[in-house]
Simulated scan of single mutants.
Amino acid sequence: MDAYARDGNPRKFDLGVGVYKDAQGLTPVLAAVKRAEQQLLEQQLSKTYVNGHGDVAYGQLLTRMVLGDDSPLLAASRAGATQTPGGTGALRLSGEFLRHCLPGRGIWLSDPTWPIHESIYAGVGLEVHHYPYVGADNRLNVEAMLACLEQIPQGDVILLHACCHNPTGFDLSHADWRRVLDVVKRRELLPLIDFAYQGFGDGLEEDAWAVRLFADQLPEMLVTSSCSKNFGLYRERTGALIVCASTESKLLDVRSQLASLARNLWSTPPDHGAAVVAQILGTPELKSLWADEVQTMRSRIAQLRRGLVEALERYGLDHRFGYIAEQRGMFSYTGLTPSEVQQLRERYSVYMVSNGRANVAGIDASRLDELAAAIAGVCR
């Protein structure tokens, strides 16, 4: 980010920062958010603290969005949300819970994964391990993943990305998810599903498929949810840790521990973003408007993926980079080497993470040919 800011080239590309950008290069405030904020401005009577689990309506509505309106867990009072400062806060709270309440359990992360996963869980004192996910050929390696999962000690925690895998963009198929679920059942592993991009893969309902499958088939699991991307509430830091327990009594036990842990982390969570989300999800007109806006963002990202591959075809590189169009979500493991990434920065002012991860959602659609030419310039 610093190097990009110092670069004086007016034609530079920022493909590093993980935010959605529209056709004007802006990260917009969604219309549904604007309307919800106006309603809150007129209706809100107090700025007093929310409780330790956050805004009640927010927690209920978000849990319903994640697990589905007809979820048997909701009917049986077996699921509940604790509001957190963003999805990152939910991850940290889950780490504290695992460390203090389930001592001795290791946690397994995909290789690669979002780097902060590693630092959060190592930072709270958990033993961090990795399972294969994307191989040296920059392709999803499900067989290697499953072979590793079969060796994980019984009872350990496995972190899975619900959709739009960060940083690779490669998602498991439904058949793959069922195979993972089978291993999780037999090894009695505890799934921790990071759900940061609901709506950015194939749709709001479609992206929740794996989460709901696991919730239906397993007695217990944890889900971290984020409203940063799909509501555009990046700076409002709005998320939740959703607990799915075997019984209502067990859920109450877990939630009492989470409230105590959260108290020592941030006392009570910030309210504004959660109030906005609750207003949107609880108002049919706003919810419909928001769903349309999520679809627009998702469609734009998919178009950018296809457009980049088509632009690379001119240089005979569509075969090498064809998987970019198959990936989901904001990020892509492009397959560019660290040397090629360095050359892109130095010769063409194209900035991305050194491992080749690019934020596709940050590409200017009018400059796809220019970006393709730069990539071709370092790949020949």
Rank of each mutant, 00 (worst) to 15 (best):
W177C: 14
A196G: 00
S339R: 10
K47A: 13
C164Q: 03
F231A: 07
A358I: 08
G199S: 08
A136G: 03
S119T: 14
A361W: 04
L40W: 03
W177H: 10
V29D: 09
N141K: 03
R345G: 07
C101F: 01
C244D: 01
E96T: 00
W114C: 14
I107V: 15
E326K: 08
D369T: 09
A23P: 00
A372W: 00
A136C: 08
Q343G: 03
V66P: 00
S256I: 00
V254H: 09
A147V: 06
M297T: 06
Y234R: 04
R179C: 04
R306I: 12
L251E: 09
I120V: 09
R314M: 08
H117L: 15
A3H: 08
G16Q: 14
S119G: 05
I107M: 07
H117S: 05
T283L: 07
C148K: 06
T247E: 09
L159A: 11
E150R: 07
L91N: 13
R105I: 02
A3E: 12
P153M: 08
R235I: 03
P270T: 04
A162S: 15
A162C: 06
V56A: 15
V19F: 14
S225T: 10
E285Y: 05
Y4C: 04
S226D: 01
R357Q: 13
E370T: 12
A259D: 15
Q38G: 10
V341W: 00
L189P: 04
G335F: 05
L73A: 12
W177G: 13
L181V: 07
A90S: 10
D194N: 14
N230E: 11
Q151Y: 01
V254M: 08
L26A: 14
N230K: 02
Q295V: 14
A162H: 05
F195P: 01
G307R: 04
S267F: 12
Y333M: 15
K47T: 13
R139M: 11
Y4L: 12
M221S: 00
G282L: 01
R347E: 14
V50N: 04
L204P: 01
G356Q: 01
Y49R: 14
K34Q: 15
Y58A: 10
Q60Y: 00
D111H: 13
T296R: 14
G86M: 06
V66A: 04
I193A: 00
G199D: 02
R367T: 02
R186A: 12
V124Q: 03
T224G: 12
E37L: 14
E37W: 05
G59N: 04
E127N: 10
L149S: 05
T63S: 15
L91G: 05
A136F: 08
G199I: 03
H130T: 03
V211K: 00
R237M: 11
R6S: 10
Q24T: 14
A373G: 09
G201W: 04
S366P: 00
Q279D: 01
Y348R: 09
D171S: 11
S366M: 05
